[in-house]
Design a protein around this nucleic acid. Structure first.
Lengths: 141, 141
DNA sequence: GTAGGAGCTGGAGTGCACTCCAGCGCAACG
DNA sequence: CGTTGCGCTGGAGTGCACTCCAGCTCCTAC
């Protein structure tokens, strides 16, 4: 064992592997305030507690669902989990929840559009026809 | 009426309004080959046929669902709707369909994570407790 | 003790997708 | 016939979110 220091804490490489974020991104998130300052081992290297990893997963979810870096930073800057910060954080999460729902709806709409088009092509192919849409006026000769 | 030239063709401003894409983006898409060359009126200005607008909506769907500009370009470069191009286009659309489904699944996963966290905060707030997660070691004083 | 490997820092660089002009031309209006 | 408005072109600029070093410090193993 070259890894463990405290109860099941992870090195940056392991966290990168587990989350899919790169080590550079993890460090960058921390520098940019998207993550609270991470504990260091006696050698000065980052050690991620299970709680820290859970927090990273939340941040990752927020980013992936389209929350801008600046907003995640605000979320984090509402400070350590003391009671008076819960309300504003919850508010942000609720806003994000609504945003995610909208995104899903839009994606489903676009999915429908793409599926329609696939059906159109399948149909045209079966009948050996050209497509009435798109008059790409690209006849160089 | 200062607008109509052919059957219900639209000016760039109208297309921008209808699609939510900016006029700059519409022109840029065309220059970059994400749209077939658009018809011009006698004055040299763009006139979008209903078919052209439909195509723009498809491109918009592809972009919005995460297809990179380069891939949309390839899609378009399979040329006007002649039969031999249907198959490769269909293939691309089917790939994108799968990608969209994955995106939706991921979004739903992340939605769940966010909702969990909201519940956690709601609960902690109700009990007036702090949060066990995130030890933001930021005590400047 | 030194060679090697992992991580560290701060800063510069990159990729993507627009977005914003400056300078021009056409058409209509008064 | 000037001027006002809209759209056109090509090119430069922007914002965002990383990503990639160079040069350093520790530890560990030989």
């Amino acid at each position: 064992m070259t890894t463990a220091t405290r109860p099941a804490s992870l090195g940056i490489r392991e966290v990168a592997e587990q989350t899919g974020l790169s080590m550079d991104t993890l460090r960058w998130y921390e520098r940019e305030g998207l993550l609270p300052l991470v504990d260091r081992g006696s050698d000065g290297r980052r050690r991620y507690s299970p709680a820290a990893v859970r927090f990273i997963l939340l941040v990752q979810a927020l980013r992936r669902t389209g929350m801008p870096v600046a907003d995640v930073r605000r979320f984090v800057q509402f400070g350590g989990g003391t009671t008076e910060n819960h309300a504003p954080r919850m508010a942000m999460l609720e806003k994000q929840e609504a945003a995610i729902r909208q995104r899903i709806a839009l994606l489903q709409h676009d999915l429908g559009l793409v599926q329609d088009k696939i059906r159109t092509y399948r149909d045209l192919l079966a009948r050996g026809l050209d497509c009435e849409d798109e008059t790409e006026g690209v006849e160089p000769a």
